[in-house]
């Protein structure tokens, strides 16, 4: 695209995030199969391959793939137990679904020419809202009005408590925003930076530096992909703990 122009660099860091229909050039309706659909499907496929095909041996001494699946299971299981307590384990399948989806979407997004579904606010926003609504409803169902005690800090002096309550309420409602933007922003930033470095590679003199920078950035992005999936999940666990035990 326009690289034949020798007088200047052309940056298209955001083009990789454009949602396009898979077939043809028509408008994007809600049901249109798009590149989003494709990469979401690939994430589902990857989950299926790792957790269903990979464990199909049911081996007592696990193969490599099976032990990866078991390690992931064990890690999330332990995280929920440590952060949310034993009661949190009832919601293990939901949290594990979130973790697996985000992890695989992030990692698939790192493939060249791919589309990163988790870099879109729409996707992460839905994930964060699911967590937010789920946790809030759960909190009210389990604790009733006691759930509001989350905002009433008993350890603070009485005069300060209303002020703190306002701050707590605001921070509670900012949760889904920061929860979703953290994930989308991290991936968006990393991918855009890689694209900017890639554009610099068009200049012969800078190209080696640029390529090295892309390699370094890519390694960093792999780390970010895993850590962001972990962070999203552990924050979900923290919110779940608040819903299960709202007392401060």
């Amino acid at each position: 695209m326009a690289t034949e122009d020798s007088t200047g660099l052309v940056f298209h860091p955001m083009d990789q995030f454009i949602v396009r229909p898979l077939f043809g050039d028509g408008p994007v309706h809600w049901y249109t199969p798009t590149n989003v659909t494709l990469w979401l499907a690939l994430a589902v496929l990857a989950v299926w391959l790792l957790f269903v095909v990979g464990t199909s041996g049911r081996a007592l001494i696990p193969s490599r793939i099976q032990s990866m699946a078991e390690l992931t299971y064990g890690m999330v299981h332990k995280m929920i137990e440590d952060v949310s307590g034993k009661e949190g384990l009832r919601y293990f399948p939901y949290i594990f679904t979130l973790f697996c989806f985000i992890l695989f979407a992030n990692m698939l997004g790192l493939l060249p020419k791919s589309f990163t579904t988790t870099s879109h606010i729409a996707v992460t926003g839905v994930l964060a809202l699911l967590v937010f609504l789920g946790v809030t409803i759960l909190g009210f169902v389990r604790n009733g009005a006691h759930f509001l005690g989350l905002f009433w800090v008993h350890s603070a002096p009485l005069a300060l408590r209303p002020v703190l309550a306002v701050i707590e309420v605001i921070s509670y409602f900012v949760r889904p925003v920061s929860h979703s933007i953290r994930l989308a922003g991290n991936l968006l930033a990393g991918h855009a930076v890689i694209k900017v470095f890639a554009a610099f590679a068009a200049i012969t003199v800078i190209a080696p530096v640029s390529i090295l920078a892309i390699i370094g950035m890519f390694a960093f992005e792999i780390m970010v992909a895993v850590i962001q999936a972990y962070v999203f999940t552990i924050l979900t666990c923290v919110y779940l703990k608040d819903a299960l035990h709202p007392a401060h």
Binding site: S178, I181, R182, G185, N186, A189, I227, Y230, V231, I234, L235, V238
Partner: peptide, 12 residues
């Protein structure tokens, strides 16, 4: 990681 996530979110 929780602390890093909170600190980082504001940069994001």
């Amino acid at each position: 990681f929780i602390g890093m996530a909170f600190a980082e979110a504001l940069g994001i």
